[in-house]
Nucleic acid binder design. Structure first.
Lengths: 215, 215
DNA sequence: AGGTGTGAACGAATTCACAGCC
DNA sequence: GGCTGTGAATTCGTTCACACCT
Protein backbone atom coordinates (compact mmCIF):
# COMPACT_ATOMS: atom_id res chain seq x y z
CA UNK A 1 0.00 0.00 0.00
CA UNK A 2 1.05 3.49 -0.70
CA UNK A 3 0.44 6.59 1.41
CA UNK A 4 -1.22 9.67 -0.08
CA UNK A 5 1.89 11.70 -0.63
CA UNK A 6 2.64 14.49 -3.07
CA UNK A 7 3.21 13.04 -6.53
CA UNK A 8 6.60 13.75 -8.08
CA UNK A 9 6.47 16.37 -10.78
CA UNK A 10 7.85 14.01 -13.45
CA UNK A 11 5.06 11.58 -12.75
CA UNK A 12 2.43 14.32 -12.97
CA UNK A 13 3.83 15.37 -16.32
CA UNK A 14 3.64 11.85 -17.67
CA UNK A 15 0.15 11.33 -16.32
CA UNK A 16 -1.14 14.48 -17.99
CA UNK A 17 0.21 13.15 -21.24
CA UNK A 18 -1.12 9.69 -20.61
CA UNK A 19 -4.53 11.23 -20.18
CA UNK A 20 -4.26 12.68 -23.68
CA UNK A 21 -3.24 9.30 -25.02
CA UNK A 22 -6.18 7.60 -23.36
CA UNK A 23 -8.55 10.25 -24.64
CA UNK A 24 -7.76 9.19 -28.19
CA UNK A 25 -7.32 5.50 -27.55
CA UNK A 26 -9.48 3.42 -29.94
CA UNK A 27 -9.92 0.36 -27.74
CA UNK A 28 -11.31 0.14 -24.24
CA UNK A 29 -8.40 -1.86 -22.99
CA UNK A 30 -4.76 -0.83 -22.74
CA UNK A 31 -1.59 -2.41 -21.34
CA UNK A 32 1.62 -0.92 -20.06
CA UNK A 33 3.29 -2.37 -23.14
CA UNK A 34 0.93 -0.52 -25.44
CA UNK A 35 1.48 2.72 -23.53
CA UNK A 36 5.19 2.18 -23.73
CA UNK A 37 5.02 1.73 -27.48
CA UNK A 38 3.21 5.02 -27.89
CA UNK A 39 5.26 7.06 -25.48
CA UNK A 40 8.66 5.45 -25.23
CA UNK A 41 8.40 5.15 -21.46
CA UNK A 42 9.60 1.91 -19.90
CA UNK A 43 6.74 -0.41 -19.01
CA UNK A 44 7.82 -0.62 -15.37
CA UNK A 45 7.89 3.13 -15.17
CA UNK A 46 4.28 3.29 -16.26
CA UNK A 47 3.18 0.68 -13.74
CA UNK A 48 5.24 2.39 -11.08
CA UNK A 49 3.67 5.78 -11.82
CA UNK A 50 0.24 4.26 -11.59
CA UNK A 51 1.21 2.65 -8.36
CA UNK A 52 2.46 5.95 -6.91
CA UNK A 53 -0.84 7.44 -7.82
CA UNK A 54 -2.64 4.71 -5.91
CA UNK A 55 -4.18 2.91 -8.84
CA UNK A 56 -4.29 -0.84 -8.61
CA UNK A 57 -7.29 -1.92 -10.59
CA UNK A 58 -5.22 -3.30 -13.41
CA UNK A 59 -5.95 -6.93 -14.07
CA UNK A 60 -3.53 -9.36 -15.58
CA UNK A 61 -4.49 -8.45 -19.09
CA UNK A 62 -4.33 -4.70 -18.90
CA UNK A 63 -6.26 -1.64 -17.81
CA UNK A 64 -9.79 -0.50 -18.48
CA UNK A 65 -9.33 2.76 -20.39
CA UNK A 66 -12.34 4.63 -19.00
CA UNK A 67 -11.65 3.63 -15.44
CA UNK A 68 -7.98 4.52 -15.73
CA UNK A 69 -8.87 7.90 -17.20
CA UNK A 70 -11.15 8.89 -14.38
CA UNK A 71 -8.70 7.58 -11.81
CA UNK A 72 -5.83 9.65 -13.17
CA UNK A 73 -8.01 12.71 -13.56
CA UNK A 74 -9.10 12.45 -9.99
CA UNK A 75 -5.64 11.82 -8.64
CA UNK A 76 -4.34 14.89 -10.39
CA UNK A 77 -7.41 16.97 -9.67
CA UNK A 78 -7.81 17.60 -13.35
CA UNK A 79 -11.35 16.43 -14.03
CA UNK A 80 -10.66 15.80 -17.63
CA UNK A 81 -14.23 15.46 -18.73
CA UNK A 82 -15.65 13.50 -21.59
CA UNK A 83 -17.81 15.50 -23.98
CA UNK A 84 -20.99 13.73 -22.84
CA UNK A 85 -20.34 14.07 -19.16
CA UNK A 86 -21.81 17.28 -17.79
CA UNK A 87 -21.41 16.51 -14.13
CA UNK A 88 -20.95 19.36 -11.72
CA UNK A 89 -17.25 19.91 -11.32
CA UNK A 90 -14.73 22.51 -10.32
CA UNK A 91 -14.26 25.01 -13.13
CA UNK A 92 -10.83 26.59 -13.14
CA UNK A 93 -10.93 30.11 -14.40
CA UNK A 94 -8.06 31.53 -16.36
CA UNK A 95 -7.12 34.53 -18.42
CA UNK A 96 -4.84 35.59 -21.23
CA UNK A 97 -2.42 38.39 -20.61
CA UNK A 98 -1.06 40.06 -23.72
CA UNK A 99 -3.04 40.09 -26.95
CA UNK A 100 -0.27 40.28 -29.51
CA UNK A 101 0.02 37.65 -32.22
CA UNK A 102 0.21 34.74 -29.84
CA UNK A 103 -2.35 35.91 -27.33
CA UNK A 104 -4.80 36.87 -30.04
CA UNK A 105 -4.56 33.32 -31.37
CA UNK A 106 -6.12 32.08 -28.14
CA UNK A 107 -9.20 34.26 -28.25
CA UNK A 108 -11.64 31.47 -28.88
CA UNK A 109 -12.64 28.76 -26.47
CA UNK A 110 -11.73 25.79 -28.59
CA UNK A 111 -8.54 25.01 -26.71
CA UNK A 112 -10.25 24.64 -23.37
CA UNK A 113 -13.33 22.85 -24.68
CA UNK A 114 -13.98 19.65 -22.72
CA UNK A 115 -11.42 20.66 -20.16
CA UNK A 116 -12.09 21.96 -16.70
CA UNK A 117 -10.57 25.31 -17.65
CA UNK A 118 -12.57 28.30 -18.69
CA UNK A 119 -11.05 31.46 -20.08
CA UNK A 120 -12.82 34.37 -18.48
CA UNK A 121 -10.85 37.37 -19.69
CA UNK A 122 -8.12 38.73 -21.90
CA UNK A 123 -5.93 41.71 -21.05
CA UNK A 124 -3.69 44.07 -22.95
CA UNK A 125 -2.24 47.47 -22.20
CA UNK A 126 -2.95 48.50 -25.77
CA UNK A 127 -6.51 49.83 -25.75
CA UNK A 128 -6.85 49.52 -29.47
CA UNK A 129 -6.38 45.76 -29.34
CA UNK A 130 -8.84 45.44 -26.51
CA UNK A 131 -11.44 47.20 -28.56
CA UNK A 132 -10.88 45.80 -32.00
CA UNK A 133 -10.27 42.10 -31.27
CA UNK A 134 -13.19 39.67 -31.31
CA UNK A 135 -13.33 36.94 -28.72
CA UNK A 136 -15.68 34.56 -26.98
CA UNK A 137 -14.94 36.18 -23.60
CA UNK A 138 -14.50 39.83 -22.57
CA UNK A 139 -11.29 41.77 -23.09
CA UNK A 140 -10.09 44.48 -20.74
CA UNK A 141 -7.32 47.05 -20.53
CA UNK A 142 -4.40 45.80 -18.47
CA UNK A 143 -4.94 48.32 -15.70
CA UNK A 144 -8.21 46.63 -14.80
CA UNK A 145 -6.48 43.30 -14.32
CA UNK A 146 -6.38 43.32 -10.56
CA UNK A 147 -10.04 43.74 -9.82
CA UNK A 148 -11.28 41.64 -12.73
CA UNK A 149 -9.12 38.74 -11.64
CA UNK A 150 -10.50 38.97 -8.15
CA UNK A 151 -14.07 39.50 -9.23
CA UNK A 152 -14.06 36.68 -11.75
CA UNK A 153 -12.13 34.37 -9.41
CA UNK A 154 -9.43 33.81 -12.00
CA UNK A 155 -6.70 31.52 -10.73
CA UNK A 156 -4.47 30.84 -13.75
CA UNK A 157 -2.97 32.98 -16.46
CA UNK A 158 -1.47 32.42 -19.86
CA UNK A 159 1.26 34.99 -20.28
CA UNK A 160 1.76 36.07 -23.89
CA UNK A 161 3.16 39.57 -23.49
CA UNK A 162 6.47 40.53 -24.98
CA UNK A 163 9.62 39.70 -23.07
CA UNK A 164 10.25 43.25 -21.90
CA UNK A 165 7.08 43.39 -19.82
CA UNK A 166 6.88 39.74 -18.76
CA UNK A 167 8.31 40.08 -15.27
CA UNK A 168 6.27 43.17 -14.44
CA UNK A 169 3.07 41.53 -15.61
CA UNK A 170 3.85 38.37 -13.72
CA UNK A 171 4.20 40.40 -10.56
CA UNK A 172 0.86 42.08 -11.15
CA UNK A 173 -0.70 38.67 -11.65
CA UNK A 174 0.80 37.38 -8.45
CA UNK A 175 -0.45 40.42 -6.57
CA UNK A 176 -3.90 39.81 -7.93
CA UNK A 177 -3.75 36.33 -6.42
CA UNK A 178 -2.98 34.18 -9.46
CA UNK A 179 -1.90 30.61 -8.56
CA UNK A 180 -0.22 29.47 -11.76
CA UNK A 181 1.22 30.94 -14.92
CA UNK A 182 1.72 29.36 -18.31
CA UNK A 183 4.66 31.40 -19.47
CA UNK A 184 4.92 31.72 -23.23
CA UNK A 185 7.59 34.39 -23.08
CA UNK A 186 11.31 33.70 -23.21
CA UNK A 187 11.86 35.20 -19.79
CA UNK A 188 12.72 33.21 -16.67
CA UNK A 189 10.03 34.47 -14.33
CA UNK A 190 10.76 35.16 -10.70
CA UNK A 191 7.67 34.39 -8.68
CA UNK A 192 7.11 33.75 -4.99
CA UNK A 193 7.00 30.17 -3.86
CA UNK A 194 3.52 28.74 -4.10
CA UNK A 195 2.95 30.15 -7.57
CA UNK A 196 3.61 27.57 -10.23
CA UNK A 197 5.10 28.45 -13.59
CA UNK A 198 5.17 26.28 -16.65
CA UNK A 199 7.54 27.52 -19.35
CA UNK A 200 6.41 27.22 -22.94
CA UNK A 201 8.78 29.45 -24.84
CA UNK A 202 8.82 28.36 -28.47
CA UNK A 203 12.27 29.77 -29.02
CA UNK A 204 13.67 27.90 -26.04
CA UNK A 205 11.97 24.76 -27.28
CA UNK A 206 13.64 25.17 -30.65
CA UNK A 207 16.97 25.49 -28.92
CA UNK A 208 16.31 22.28 -27.01
CA UNK A 209 15.22 20.36 -30.04
CA UNK A 210 18.62 20.82 -31.61
CA UNK A 211 20.15 17.44 -31.82
CA UNK A 212 23.87 17.50 -31.35
CA UNK A 213 24.31 13.86 -30.62
CA UNK A 214 27.76 12.84 -31.79
CA UNK A 215 27.02 9.47 -33.25
CA UNK B 1 38.90 18.44 -15.61
CA UNK B 2 35.85 17.15 -17.23
CA UNK B 3 35.58 14.97 -20.33
CA UNK B 4 33.46 16.10 -23.28
CA UNK B 5 30.46 13.95 -22.62
CA UNK B 6 26.82 14.42 -23.62
CA UNK B 7 25.28 17.09 -21.42
CA UNK B 8 22.29 15.91 -19.37
CA UNK B 9 18.98 17.13 -20.71
CA UNK B 10 18.09 18.92 -17.47
CA UNK B 11 21.29 20.88 -17.64
CA UNK B 12 20.67 21.83 -21.26
CA UNK B 13 17.23 23.08 -20.32
CA UNK B 14 18.60 25.24 -17.56
CA UNK B 15 21.37 26.57 -19.74
CA UNK B 16 18.95 27.63 -22.45
CA UNK B 17 17.06 29.56 -19.83
CA UNK B 18 20.19 30.98 -18.31
CA UNK B 19 21.07 32.31 -21.73
CA UNK B 20 17.82 34.23 -21.75
CA UNK B 21 18.54 35.59 -18.33
CA UNK B 22 22.01 36.72 -19.37
CA UNK B 23 20.61 38.32 -22.50
CA UNK B 24 18.62 40.72 -20.36
CA UNK B 25 21.12 41.10 -17.54
CA UNK B 26 21.82 44.78 -16.83
CA UNK B 27 25.32 44.38 -15.39
CA UNK B 28 28.35 42.77 -16.97
CA UNK B 29 29.05 40.67 -13.94
CA UNK B 30 26.92 37.92 -12.44
CA UNK B 31 27.34 35.43 -9.60
CA UNK B 32 25.80 32.07 -8.94
CA UNK B 33 23.93 33.70 -6.08
CA UNK B 34 22.38 36.28 -8.39
CA UNK B 35 21.39 33.58 -10.86
CA UNK B 36 19.89 31.59 -8.04
CA UNK B 37 17.83 34.55 -6.92
CA UNK B 38 16.38 34.98 -10.38
CA UNK B 39 15.74 31.36 -11.13
CA UNK B 40 15.32 29.56 -7.86
CA UNK B 41 18.06 27.07 -8.71
CA UNK B 42 20.48 26.17 -5.96
CA UNK B 43 23.81 27.99 -6.30
CA UNK B 44 25.78 24.74 -6.33
CA UNK B 45 23.59 23.42 -9.08
CA UNK B 46 24.44 26.39 -11.24
CA UNK B 47 28.16 26.05 -10.64
CA UNK B 48 27.89 22.32 -11.21
CA UNK B 49 26.07 22.80 -14.51
CA UNK B 50 28.71 25.23 -15.65
CA UNK B 51 31.34 22.77 -14.64
CA UNK B 52 29.69 19.95 -16.60
CA UNK B 53 29.71 22.21 -19.58
CA UNK B 54 33.41 22.78 -19.18
CA UNK B 55 33.31 26.39 -18.16
CA UNK B 56 35.83 27.43 -15.56
CA UNK B 57 36.57 31.05 -16.19
CA UNK B 58 34.65 32.22 -13.18
CA UNK B 59 36.77 34.25 -10.83
CA UNK B 60 36.17 34.55 -7.15
CA UNK B 61 33.79 37.40 -7.58
CA UNK B 62 31.56 36.04 -10.28
CA UNK B 63 31.28 35.51 -14.00
CA UNK B 64 31.75 37.85 -16.93
CA UNK B 65 28.31 37.98 -18.56
CA UNK B 66 29.44 38.28 -22.19
CA UNK B 67 32.03 35.58 -21.87
CA UNK B 68 29.64 33.24 -20.11
CA UNK B 69 27.02 33.83 -22.79
CA UNK B 70 29.27 32.92 -25.66
CA UNK B 71 30.62 29.94 -23.75
CA UNK B 72 27.17 28.52 -23.10
CA UNK B 73 26.01 29.22 -26.63
CA UNK B 74 28.98 27.38 -28.01
CA UNK B 75 28.67 24.46 -25.64
CA UNK B 76 25.05 23.99 -26.64
CA UNK B 77 25.64 24.74 -30.29
CA UNK B 78 23.05 27.47 -30.10
CA UNK B 79 24.92 30.51 -31.37
CA UNK B 80 22.66 32.88 -29.57
CA UNK B 81 23.77 36.01 -31.32
CA UNK B 82 23.79 39.54 -30.09
CA UNK B 83 21.92 42.01 -32.29
CA UNK B 84 25.16 43.72 -33.35
CA UNK B 85 27.03 40.56 -34.14
CA UNK B 86 26.57 39.50 -37.74
CA UNK B 87 29.26 36.88 -37.89
CA UNK B 88 28.86 33.99 -40.25
CA UNK B 89 27.17 31.18 -38.37
CA UNK B 90 25.11 28.08 -38.87
CA UNK B 91 21.53 29.03 -39.71
CA UNK B 92 19.01 26.43 -38.66
CA UNK B 93 16.07 26.32 -40.97
CA UNK B 94 12.64 25.55 -39.68
CA UNK B 95 9.02 25.55 -40.76
CA UNK B 96 5.54 25.87 -39.36
CA UNK B 97 3.10 23.07 -39.99
CA UNK B 98 -0.53 23.98 -39.56
CA UNK B 99 -1.73 27.54 -40.08
CA UNK B 100 -4.75 27.63 -37.82
CA UNK B 101 -5.00 30.24 -35.07
CA UNK B 102 -1.76 29.26 -33.41
CA UNK B 103 0.29 28.66 -36.53
CA UNK B 104 -0.93 31.86 -38.14
CA UNK B 105 0.30 33.74 -35.08
CA UNK B 106 3.84 32.73 -35.96
CA UNK B 107 3.82 34.05 -39.50
CA UNK B 108 6.25 36.86 -38.88
CA UNK B 109 9.92 36.54 -38.14
CA UNK B 110 9.95 38.44 -34.88
CA UNK B 111 10.20 35.34 -32.73
CA UNK B 112 13.36 34.07 -34.37
CA UNK B 113 15.02 37.48 -34.72
CA UNK B 114 18.52 37.44 -33.29
CA UNK B 115 18.40 33.70 -33.01
CA UNK B 116 20.13 31.20 -35.24
CA UNK B 117 16.77 29.93 -36.46
CA UNK B 118 15.16 31.01 -39.67
CA UNK B 119 11.63 30.12 -40.65
CA UNK B 120 11.66 29.16 -44.29
CA UNK B 121 8.15 27.91 -44.90
CA UNK B 122 4.64 27.43 -43.59
CA UNK B 123 2.35 24.55 -44.55
CA UNK B 124 -1.34 23.84 -44.35
CA UNK B 125 -3.61 21.37 -46.08
CA UNK B 126 -6.22 24.09 -46.41
CA UNK B 127 -5.41 25.86 -49.67
CA UNK B 128 -7.47 28.87 -48.75
CA UNK B 129 -5.26 29.62 -45.77
CA UNK B 130 -2.13 29.17 -47.81
CA UNK B 131 -3.37 31.76 -50.26
CA UNK B 132 -4.94 34.33 -48.03
CA UNK B 133 -2.49 34.54 -45.14
CA UNK B 134 0.30 37.11 -45.23
CA UNK B 135 3.73 36.14 -43.99
CA UNK B 136 7.38 37.05 -44.20
CA UNK B 137 8.21 33.65 -45.72
CA UNK B 138 6.42 31.52 -48.32
CA UNK B 139 3.43 29.33 -47.54
CA UNK B 140 2.73 26.05 -49.31
CA UNK B 141 0.03 23.43 -49.45
CA UNK B 142 0.80 20.51 -47.16
CA UNK B 143 1.27 18.06 -50.00
CA UNK B 144 4.37 19.93 -51.11
CA UNK B 145 5.95 19.52 -47.70
CA UNK B 146 8.30 16.73 -48.56
CA UNK B 147 10.19 18.31 -51.40
CA UNK B 148 10.18 21.84 -49.98
CA UNK B 149 11.69 20.59 -46.73
CA UNK B 150 14.41 18.82 -48.65
CA UNK B 151 15.01 21.65 -51.08
CA UNK B 152 15.12 24.33 -48.41
CA UNK B 153 17.18 22.15 -46.08
CA UNK B 154 14.65 22.54 -43.29
CA UNK B 155 15.64 20.62 -40.16
CA UNK B 156 13.10 21.64 -37.52
CA UNK B 157 9.36 22.02 -37.44
CA UNK B 158 6.84 23.74 -35.22
CA UNK B 159 3.75 21.59 -35.24
CA UNK B 160 0.53 23.57 -34.82
CA UNK B 161 -2.00 21.37 -36.55
CA UNK B 162 -5.07 20.12 -34.78
CA UNK B 163 -4.75 17.03 -32.60
CA UNK B 164 -6.45 14.72 -35.05
CA UNK B 165 -3.78 15.12 -37.70
CA UNK B 166 -0.76 15.58 -35.44
CA UNK B 167 0.62 12.05 -35.61
CA UNK B 168 0.16 11.78 -39.37
CA UNK B 169 1.88 15.10 -39.95
CA UNK B 170 4.70 14.20 -37.61
CA UNK B 171 5.31 11.07 -39.63
CA UNK B 172 5.40 13.05 -42.85
CA UNK B 173 7.90 15.42 -41.27
CA UNK B 174 10.07 12.55 -40.14
CA UNK B 175 9.96 11.04 -43.62
CA UNK B 176 11.04 14.35 -45.06
CA UNK B 177 14.09 14.21 -42.80
CA UNK B 178 13.11 16.60 -40.01
CA UNK B 179 15.41 16.36 -36.96
CA UNK B 180 13.30 17.98 -34.27
CA UNK B 181 9.70 18.94 -33.62
CA UNK B 182 8.27 21.57 -31.33
CA UNK B 183 4.94 19.99 -30.64
CA UNK B 184 2.21 22.47 -29.80
CA UNK B 185 -0.56 19.89 -30.04
CA UNK B 186 -1.90 17.90 -27.11
CA UNK B 187 -0.88 14.62 -28.68
CA UNK B 188 1.96 12.43 -27.44
CA UNK B 189 3.89 11.99 -30.66
CA UNK B 190 5.47 8.70 -31.57
CA UNK B 191 8.65 9.37 -33.49
CA UNK B 192 11.68 7.25 -34.29
CA UNK B 193 14.65 7.58 -32.01
CA UNK B 194 16.95 10.33 -33.17
CA UNK B 195 14.12 12.77 -33.73
CA UNK B 196 13.71 15.09 -30.79
CA UNK B 197 10.33 16.34 -29.65
CA UNK B 198 9.69 19.19 -27.28
CA UNK B 199 6.11 19.29 -26.01
CA UNK B 200 4.49 22.69 -25.64
CA UNK B 201 0.82 21.92 -25.28
CA UNK B 202 -0.84 24.87 -23.58
CA UNK B 203 -3.64 22.72 -22.25
CA UNK B 204 -1.21 20.26 -20.71
CA UNK B 205 0.70 23.16 -19.23
CA UNK B 206 -2.48 24.46 -17.63
CA UNK B 207 -3.06 21.05 -16.14
CA UNK B 208 0.44 21.04 -14.70
CA UNK B 209 0.17 24.49 -13.27
CA UNK B 210 -2.67 23.39 -11.04
CA UNK B 211 -1.43 23.62 -7.57
CA UNK B 212 -2.86 20.97 -5.35
CA UNK B 213 -0.38 21.30 -2.57
CA UNK B 214 -2.15 20.29 0.62
CA UNK B 215 -0.76 22.82 3.01
C1' DA C 1 1.91 -16.99 -21.88
C1' DG C 2 1.25 -12.41 -20.99
C1' DG C 3 -0.03 -9.26 -17.93
C1' DT C 4 0.05 -6.33 -13.07
C1' DG C 5 1.87 -4.69 -8.23
C1' DT C 6 5.64 -3.85 -5.58
C1' DG C 7 9.94 -3.45 -3.22
C1' DA C 8 14.84 -3.60 -3.94
C1' DA C 9 18.72 -2.32 -6.81
C1' DC C 10 20.54 0.82 -9.64
C1' DG C 11 21.63 5.14 -11.93
C1' DA C 12 20.99 10.08 -12.45
C1' DA C 13 20.56 14.63 -10.61
C1' DT C 14 21.10 17.71 -6.79
C1' DT C 15 23.10 19.37 -2.75
C1' DC C 16 26.84 19.50 0.55
C1' DA C 17 31.31 20.57 1.97
C1' DC C 18 35.42 22.40 1.57
C1' DA C 19 39.93 23.82 -0.61
C1' DG C 20 41.59 27.58 -3.18
C1' DC C 21 41.36 32.36 -4.92
C1' DC C 22 40.66 37.44 -4.92
C1' DG D 1 34.11 37.67 3.44
C1' DG D 2 32.30 36.33 -0.52
C1' DC D 3 33.05 33.84 -4.45
C1' DT D 4 34.23 29.60 -7.70
C1' DG D 5 35.58 24.58 -8.88
C1' DT D 6 35.07 20.07 -7.72
C1' DG D 7 34.47 15.54 -5.76
C1' DA D 8 31.75 13.09 -2.33
C1' DA D 9 27.36 12.37 -0.10
C1' DT D 10 22.69 12.37 -0.58
C1' DT D 11 18.30 12.45 -2.59
C1' DC D 12 15.37 11.40 -6.24
C1' DG D 13 13.80 8.84 -10.39
C1' DT D 14 13.98 4.65 -13.17
C1' DT D 15 14.57 -0.02 -14.04
C1' DC D 16 14.93 -4.78 -12.53
C1' DA D 17 13.17 -8.87 -10.65
C1' DC D 18 9.88 -11.63 -9.21
C1' DA D 19 5.48 -13.14 -6.85
C1' DC D 20 0.98 -13.32 -8.08
C1' DC D 21 -3.14 -13.25 -11.10
C1' DT D 22 -6.18 -14.73 -15.13
Amino acid sequence: MNTIVELPEVTRKRMVQLLQLLKAWPDNKITSVAISESTGWNTSLIRHDLWLLGYNKGVSNGYQVDDLRTAISQALGIENKLPIDNSEQAIRNCCIVGLGHLGAALLNDEMTENSSFKIKAGFDSNLYRVEILRSSFPLYPANEMNWIIKQEKIEYAILTVKDETAQTMAEKLVNAGIKGIVNMTNVVLKVPEGVKVENLSILNALNLVINNSHR
